[in-house]
Structures are given as structure tokens and as C-alpha cells.
Design a protein around this nucleic acid. Structure first.
Lengths: 173, 173
DNA sequence: TTATTGAGTGAGTAATCACTTACAAATGTA
DNA sequence: TACATTTGTAAGTGATTACTCACTCAATAA
């Protein structure tokens, strides 16, 4: 990636996540990146290609987190790590995750392989711990992760107290 | 509301929620509603006014649910009703709530008076039940409601098992 | 030196955007 | 009946959209 290509990438990520993809014109991106509009199309083919490049980079990082948790042997620790996930998002990753959660609602919902493995590994953990409905428990944890992540990404309050409450409910203190 | 005005309202709600506000042009709305484009501006002033009309109607209904729960006297029952909330969304309200959750991420996050009362009433309930951090518990319940609602609105799986798991965690069986 | 190539530009393109305007049809109301 | 108001339409408006094209420039290689 050349410097200007990176500028385009960064400008697009910021604008896509704060204003939305459809409300962000290529001319706006070019201006913010300090670049001619044509360069966007040389490097990324079209607006959709630029979005895909951003998504690919972010999802690769995300997948790594999921795989790490899924590979944890101890079932209690695995569930603990899963619940901690939204609390460990670094602020410099906020723009990507805001974009990600927005896109969930339009365009296709991105169900990556890693997320599916993650879900079954959670389900297995609940099975080992003799929960009566492990699949539902896994879905619930996923929903809680999404809900807490949303709270963290949208409001800017200290999220830490929420984690304490959560660990109570799963007896993971 | 005349019949054609209602057609515009319905067409816009469907398109806004499925494609997104910015990706929905007024000409598309007019076509879907079987109406000339100009009529949209006669009845709703502009595209933003149309969105606001949709939001106002939906939020009024939503506020009513929140107030009903907040007025429940028994603290355990109040928390129970809150957790049941996302499971009681009627499918014909799905388009509005999909639109609502999408808009959370762009445009200003709509913090209505009713939601704030709802939050403090939850906090009060947790106080009465001697939870150590009632405010955080209330925020967590809100986050869980959002997460579960998202799961219900996006995927189309039977949500009922999730409710059972949830009630376990709050000892509300 | 000369040829080739990839980065970068800026002025275009047709299509679409939200919105307006002039006017016709329908509806009430005296 | 006559007239005023509301409901509705069709054909526009200028601005903006994503994208293209012809071009320059700098670096590298033969």
C-alpha cells in the first residue's frame, strides 16, 4: 500500500463508520484523504471494492480473537474470555466495529467461518458444564456480546461495572 | 391520513428498514407506493420529514411498552417484564425496529424520556432486591434487551429458548 | 538514452438525487 | 350552482453521484 492508498483507506473507514456508507461520497473520501477522486478507482476499482478492502482487513483481525477464544481448553475460562471480548476492544478499532454493526442491518449479515466455530465451541463449553440447553446458551452469549459491544461503541461510559454484573450471572467471579 | 399518504408511509418504512434511509430515493418510494413523487413532498415536506413521521409513530408505541413496565410495582416482575420485552415484539413491528436499530449507529442516538424513566425504574428494582450495583445492572439489562432484539430481528430462529436461559441467570423461573 | 510502467491528476460523463412548479382533478361548502 | 381548498400529477430544476478518460510525472530497467 502506498501512502496515498493508505490515506484513502483510513478516510473511507472514518467516514463510512461515522456517516454511513451510502451517505459517504467518493468525492468526500478523496477530499479527506487529500487525493484526487480518480485515485480511489485506480486502487480499489470502485466504491464497493473500497468497502470490501476495509471489511476484509477488519474481519481478519476479528476472526483471530474468535479463534483464540475457541482454542481455550478450560470451558469456564472459554466462556469467561467470550464475555470479556467486547470489553477488550481497543478504541482505535471502534470505527471498524461501528461500521461492522451498521452493516449487519443492511447488506448481508456476514457469518464468517470463525464466528460459527466460536459458537459451537461455546456450546461445547456449556455442555461440559452440564447446562440444560447449550446451543441456546451459546446464542445468548453471542447476543449479550453484541448488546454490550453496542453499549460500549455508542455511549461512552465506563463499561467495567457491566462486566462485573455479567460474571455474577455466569458464576465466574 | 389519506389512503395515498398511508401508502407513502408504508412504502417508506419498508424501504428505509430494508435498504437504509440513504439508499432509498424518493422516486423509489413513490413507485412502490403507486404515487407521483411530488405527493411525498406535499404530505411530508421533505424526505427527512417523512423519516420523522415514521420515527414518531413507532417511538410513541415503543414508549407505551416502556412506561407499562416501569409502572409495575413488584421489582421481580418488573425485571421479568423487561427481559421479556424483545420476545414480545410483533412481527408486523419488525420493519420499524430494524429501522430504529440501524439509525442508532448514524444520526443521533434517540434517548427518549420514556427510556430514561425505564432505566431508573429498573435500577430501583435492583436496589430493592439488594443487588450490589443497581445502576450497572440496569444498563446491563438494557444492553441484553438490545442484543436479544438484534438476534431476533436479524436471524429468524425461534427465540424462546434464549428467554429460558435468561430467566435462569436472573433467578426468575 | 530510451522505453515501460505504475502513481496520481483533473476535467469530464450520464445518471440519479431531493425538491419545485404549474397545473388538473377531486372534494367540500355556501 | 359557484367557488375555495385540498389532493394529486407530470415535467421540470440545479446539484451531486459514481465512475471514466486522457493525460503528466517519476522511477526503474534495458
Amino acid at each position: 500500500m502506498t501512502e496515498k492508498q493508505q490515506n484513502i483507506f483510513n478516510a473511507a473507514l472514518e467516514l463510512f463508520s461515522s456517516e454511513g456508507v451510502d451517505a459517504t461520497s467518493t468525492s468526500k473520501i478523496a477530499k479527506r484523504a487529500g487525493v484526487s477522486e480518480g485515485l480511489i478507482f485506480r486502487h480499489f476499482k470502485n466504491k464497493e471494492g473500497l468497502l470490501q478492502a476495509i471489511l476484509e482487513e477488519g474481519l481478519n483481525k476479528g476472526e483471530a480473537y474468535f479463534r483464540e477464544i475457541a482454542s481455550e481448553e478450560n470451558p469456564k475460562k472459554r466462556i469467561l474470555s467470550a464475555l470479556q471480548l467486547p470489553f477488550s476492544i481497543s478504541p482505535n478499532e471502534y470505527p471498524f466495529w461501528r461500521l461492522f454493526y451498521t452493516l449487519k442491518w443492511q447488506r448481508c449479515n456476514i457469518e464468517t467461518e470463525g464466528v460459527m466455530d466460536f459458537r459451537t465451541s461455546l456450546s461445547d463449553a456449556f455442555t461440559q458444564l452440564k447446562y440444560t440447553n447449550p446451543e441456546a446458551e451459546a446464542r445468548l452469549v453471542e447476543a449479550i456480546i453484541d448488546g454490550v459491544a453496542t453499549e460500549i461503541l455508542i455511549k461512552n461510559l465506563d463499561p467495567q461495572p457491566l462486566l462485573q454484573c455479567l460474571l455474577d450471572k455466569y458464576k465466574l467471579k
